[in-house]
């Protein structure tokens, strides 16, 4: 009886061995399909777009086909592109950096001081509730025409998610660890640096991911108000002269810029704080 049981348990895993050929092939195909699906979808959308524009003779100033957008993109000179891209990128990254430098210490203070939180929090909500597009012209008038107002607008738009998430993260520290820290009579500084801030890292990174794309939005909004360079400015300029394919080309580059920046933040988290990701997403 026992030997039959043993042989049964020995043979049963053999039937579902992972290198079982048809099963493995199906599995591989499924994996490849899952991997390629997003790219294939993109290609399909572009193809439908192109054919629809051609078959229905849609005028270029209403909706240019992808081929016209690519042509318009190549029609612009390399130095023109570099100028626009670096200008937008610089404002976005400067605003993002300023926002991080302000929001992390501020969030730490808000999390640890209920009084400060009660005082400052309503102000933050008011700032966040104000439509930034409406305030942008005022900021430009107040701060003059330079990178400064653009950086300010970008940091205002990006810092709210950072403050909220970091505060939440710091407060999510388990009570037991705070008690452990107290029982060791550690300083408040060590409690924050060695326990609370690391605990907030997953929260901080989810905000960093939201904020980096908002930073690009902020830079473009600022360029709409006052700028002589940048992708936002280029879109505004192109549409004012009905060069719609060129506007679309700038838009495509903006989207790519956002995606690359987002990817960089994701990669930074993976390299610097792999423990903060769910296990299946580490590599």
């Amino acid at each position: 009886m026992s030997s039959r049981l043993a042989s049964a348990t020995r043979s049963s895993p053999a039937r579902v061995r992972p290198d079982d050929p048809p099963r493995a092939r199906a599995q591989r195909l499924k994996k490849a399909a899952a991997h390629l699906a997003p790219t294939l979808t993109m290609v399909a959308i572009l193809a439908v777009w192109e054919t629809a524009c051609r078959l229905l003779h849609v005028p270029e100033f209403l909706l240019p086909p992808p081929s016209a957008i690519v042509r318009a993109g190549f029609a612009m000179s390399g130095s023109e592109w570099v100028g626009h891209i670096t200008s937008t990128l610089r404002v976005a990254l400067e605003g993002y950096t300023v926002s991080i430098l302000i929001s992390l210490p501020l969030a730490t203070m808000l999390a640890l001081s209920p009084v400060l939180s009660r005082t400052v929090y309503p102000i933050l909500v008011v700032i966040h509730s104000t439509p930034i597009v409406a305030v942008a012209p005022i900021i430009v008038v107040t701060l003059g025409v330079s990178d400064l107002p653009r950086v300010v607008i970008t940091s205002i738009i990006t810092f709210f998610p950072l403050v909220i998430s970091t505060t939440t993260g710091i407060l999510s520290t388990p009570d037991e660890l705070v008690e452990l820290s107290r029982s060791l009579r550690a300083t408040r500084g060590r409690e924050i640096l060695q326990i609370r801030l690391p605990y907030a890292v997953p929260h901080i990174f989810s905000a960093l991911k939201v904020s980096i794309t908002l930073a690009v939005v902020g830079a473009v909004v600022a360029e709409f108000v006052a700028a002589e360079r940048g992708l936002g400015y280029a879109i505004l300029f192109a549409t004012s002269t009905f060069k719609i394919p060129q506007a679309f080309a700038c838009l495509a580059v903006l989207v790519m810029m956002s995606l690359i920046l987002f990817r960089l933040v994701v990669t930074a988290q993976m390299l610097l704080f792999p423990w903060s990701l769910p296990r299946e997403r580490r590599n």
Partner: peptide, 25 residues
């Protein structure tokens, strides 16, 4: 103190978790 939950620090390996009270104090 040993708590109900282990409350180890997820960013440290097991040995660094054990030496954590020294580093923290």
């Amino acid at each position: 103190i040993v708590f109900q939950k282990p409350t180890l620090l997820p960013w440290l390996d097991v040995k660094s978790n054990v030496t954590f009270p020294m580093r923290h104090k």
